[in-house]
Design a protein around this nucleic acid. Structure first.
Lengths: 164, 164
DNA sequence: CCTCTTCACTTGAAGCTTGAAGTCATTGCG
DNA sequence: CGCAATGACTTCAAGCTTCAAGTGAAGAGG
């Protein structure tokens, strides 16, 4: 069925790799969508949830925008837009860092904290249902390793304590 | 059918699950971005590439829109917009199915075929570099299994060809 | 001081995606 | 045949993301 013709093929994907690739792509596309759908009732996107969750776990529920962008795996530009949205919703607040005016500190408001606390159980339950329940403990461990290796290939200096 | 938004706190994620989750999220966000970046030189998005690749491997390089949407893991609405874009670029063509006017057949033009053939080697090389080179053969196999299980949890009737 | 450069962040415009509503062909039923 | 129902796609308006350009704070050099 396959054997797509090309003139200058590097190493093509073999059957097993193809299966893995389809699986990975499917998960990437469908999981994100499923999580967004679950959070839709809460009026949050999955990315917004991630941002608020990161803030909620930080000291003073506060982080510099650049640090927050790294946690949330998004560009600074995207984060800026999203935090502006969260501010409009009353969930977050921004202020210049008193220690250095070039930095901006994003803070989770009390309302934002309540929001994330009430949304978290449902969200975690969905994550568990879709990702962890179907996997064995060994597979979860494998997934950690696999994820770390791919991330390292994408960005070698992504703060890793990588060991073999 | 609404998900219970709050209620009881379910089982939280343990350390290993947390690591796996961060890995998976990181891969989802960064890999898609990396692939889009690689294909940017070709003037294609990763999703467009997937659509064209699916067509190129089909008989007559032609598929019904709904079938194509399933292959590409996207909504029919999204696909419709994307194929319109590909049509504007001269890479694809649409026509009503002569056998039943409710269906639409999307076809890859010769120009589109040339495009995908010239873009494929670079793209596959990048996929290999980011995903398969860093993994052992055993991990690739694990990834197939893990992906299949998660996909099954997201959508139980998604063509289940599980053989081991 | 004043200006130049760097750095962290924000804004603007364009493009992509989404869910809802709309279109159009075929089928079912009287 | 007429007319509603179904199904497959398309379009629309709104929202989100992106890259590039812009803003403003801190420090360096004169």
């Amino acid at each position: 069925m396959t054997n797509t013709p090309t003139d200058v093929a590097p190493r093509w994907l073999d059957e097993e790799e193809r299966r893995a690739w389809l699986g990975l792509m499917g998960v990437m596309r469908r999981l994100e969508h499923a999580l967004d759908t679950q959070l839709r009732d809460e009026g949050l996107t999955h990315f917004e949830y991630g941002v608020m969750a990161a803030l909620s776990e930080s000291p003073q529920r506060e982080l510099r925008m650049s640090a927050l962008a790294a946690y949330a795996e998004g560009s600074l530009s995207r984060l800026s837009q999203v935090v502006a949205r969260l501010e409009r919703k009353g969930y977050a607040h921004r202020r210049p860092d008193p220690a250095d005016g070039r930095y901006t500190l994003a803070t989770l408001t009390d309302e934002g904290y309540e929001k994330i606390v009430s949304a978290a159980p449902g969200h975690v339950a969905e994550v568990r249902r879709l990702v962890f329940d179907p996997l064995t403990k060994a597979q979860v461990k494998q997934l950690s390793h696999i994820g770390r290796r791919i991330l390292h290939a994408i960005d070698p200096d992504h703060s890793d304590g990588d060991r073999g």
